[in-house]
Nucleic acid binder design. Sequence first.
DNA 1: TTAGGGTTAG
Length: 616
Amino acid sequence: MSAILSIPSSNPPTISTFKNLDFCSTMAELKQHHAQIVKLGLSSDNDGTGRLIKFSALSQSGDLPYALKVFASLPQPDAFIYNTIFRAYLHAQLHTHCLSLYSHMLQNSVTPNNYSFPPVIRACAAAAGVGKQVHAHVIKFGFSRDSYCQNNLIRMYVGFDELEAARRVFDRMERKDDVSWTTMISGYSQCGWLGEALRVFETMAVKNSAAWNAVIAAHVQNNRFHDAFKLFDRMMEEDVEMDGFVAASMLAACTGLGALELGEWIHERMESRGIRIDTKLATTLMDMYCKCGRLDKAVEVFDGLRVKGVSSWNCMIGGFAMHGRGRDAIGLLKRMEAEAGRPDPVTFVNVLAACAHSGMVEEGRRYFSYMTEAYDIAPRMEHYGCLVDLLGRAGLLDEARMVIDEMPMSPDVGVLGALLGACRIHGNLEMAEEVGHRVIELEPGNSGRYVLLANLYAKEGRLEDVARVRKLMNDRGVKKVAGSSTIELAGSVCEFVAGGRAHPEAREIYAKVGEIVRRIRDFGYVTDSEGVLYEAGEEESENPLHYHSEKLAIAYGLLKTKPGDTIRVTKNLRVCKDCHEASKLISEAYDREIIVRDRNRFHHFKGGVCSCNDYW
DNA sequence: TTAGGGTTAG
């Protein structure tokens, strides 16, 4: 009694004590203030404890358990305090906790406000049923016109792949803002509904860079790189300047096309426009350089990074991996451990891939156990995929098979596909047959699997089996993916399809291929018939192998570039054995460096040899 | 006190 009476009401200590809370920077400080609050008998005060909870729940140096303890001690927390904990749970990915607390709030008869629903809606990410209920509450509590609530609902439905529901929310909004539009556009692009994404985009009166980016990114994510460039050109014509997000999307488009010059142009523009290169953007940039064959430039960007995130290290290690530089990849892992601390699961996917692509079997095995021993990272499907790839490529098919039999989860197509690939390399038809059928049943729409199996049968002369696989493919309406290669010349990207004659200079290109084949025969070229069956149209009277897309692209490169220039080609599928052999000989016969990126990795052909040591 | 667009693997 006297203690409370001793507080002069004209000079409320509450205000100064509570204000001090806003200047806290550590939990230790905060706890002192908290002690003060308790001493003054103000611990039931929502204003003061609200600030206290906010700091401990949300700040960098906070302490969520502490916040929860304080929260639990409050007799009647208000909406602000509930909202704070909602957000904290969301940050901690404790979605269920967030939803339980929301029901707790309702049971306590605390009315949610406009700030309550955005985090609660986001917490519904994993529970569609609850999401609909929360949507009903948004209406019931009168927030049908609140753009934050509505935009979050759109996002929620997009996350459930319920685009119609998302669209209904969107259509009913009287005042759609930039966020509504962008969420709707990017929602369609997740589902691959590019047409709808574009239609929504076109009806937007004033398009800001976020909207442009959403629609550009939509195309990039669906491998429509040329269209992404067209949109980008339009954006520039309409005087909307490229920002960091658009730059990232465009770099990814360049990566997809293997368009180095365009990528360099984007990089230059980023610099001239003073776009801040954060870790994410730097990773995208490095990835572009890695996948466009300029590992040196990627290293330059990497070395120039003041703050390197785990993703930066991972990207660079992955870059070394795809260029077959296993030693450098491992060197970088060691540097990462010394300088940056903890690698993550992706780091080891890349390290294992590096070992696999460089034939470093022992190291690969060692790192597979090391990641668990040193970092307690349990192997995921991807790691098993890499291990199977590593062993399989090296010809250790039985061991690879054993890994699959003994792994704790059931292998996905990726893992089985790695074994199938290994069977092809080592000509093990028996295992290929069994694994191939499993893979085909798991992924019946992937034409590559049928082709691989059919080609293996063909090699053994088992034509009935070839016909059977082919029929299966036809019956299921599976279309083979056409081999296509791109080459960038003077900033424009030309695409070649196997056996295609659409190019205006097709005659010259085909003549050049003829010349090439004649010339490399002097260097020992013998056409390798493996894989002949499906790669080109059957009406082709000459050997269709000679008109594989990468040969056409290389021929065009030889026609259009100067002696000494490097020829860079990007292929959508794996490079075939015949093209690989031919490319080696072309690099020797024409004294050219040829860099081919295929679906899996890079091949640097020079002086008659390939950087992959024929190991791919 | 709240929301939208961009990275890393096989």
